[in-house]
């Protein structure tokens, strides 16, 4: 299958297979006017299978979201058809308004103007908990 290479834009590579759509949704790539390609289940020597997202525009990516969903991804910045920058992301310490608390007894569930804040409580298990009620993020 051929997907056009991009001239100026971003390639998010090494996405764990299955996480591509989640990233697409949390990064709100559906709101972009430019071409966006999600390629699922691409064969990979390292990972067996992986997902790739190609964005045909130089946009600002929320690296907290990337790090939260999949800290193993690689971001490639493309200019004039060449990779000019390549970086990895890490688990963010705090997530603000990325996910919301599902605990109906949490203050954030009834006061809508409150920021939804989650903090990293265990790096090893990649556990995030709601700042207000400590409910684990799912």
């Amino acid at each position: 299958m051929n997907i056009d290479s991009i001239k100026d834009g971003i390639v998010i590579d090494h996405i764990t297979a299955g996480n591509g759509m989640r990233l697409y949704s949390l990064l709100e790539l559906d709101k972009l006017e430019c071409t966006v390609a999600i390629i699922k289940n691409v064969g990979s020597k390292q990972m067996g299978k992986k997902d790739i997202i190609k964005i045909d525009a130089d946009i600002e990516l929320n690296t907290d979201i990337l790090g939260y969903v999949d800290p193993d991804v690689t971001v490639n910045i493309i200019k004039e058809g060449k990779i000019v920058n390549k970086y990895s992301v890490s688990l963010p310490e705090t997530l603000k308004n990325v996910i919301s608390c599902k605990n109906p007894r949490c203050i954030s569930s009834c006061e809508q103007e409150l920021d939804q804040i989650f903090t990293l409580t265990d790096k090893e298990t990649r556990t995030y908990r709601c700042l207000y009620c400590e409910t684990k993020a799912k």
């Binding site: 605990n103 007894r105 203050i107 954030s108 006061e111 700042l131 207000y132």
Partner: peptide, 24 residues
């Protein structure tokens, strides 16, 4: 509601003591 005293402490200019927030 769980976390309400924390929200209060983030907005108050005086100390806040949590005297019980739901089952939290």
């Amino acid at each position: 509601k769980e976390g309400a005293p924390l929200v209060a402490s983030m907005n108050a200019s005086i100390p806040v003591i949590n005297a019980g927030d739901g089952g939290h």
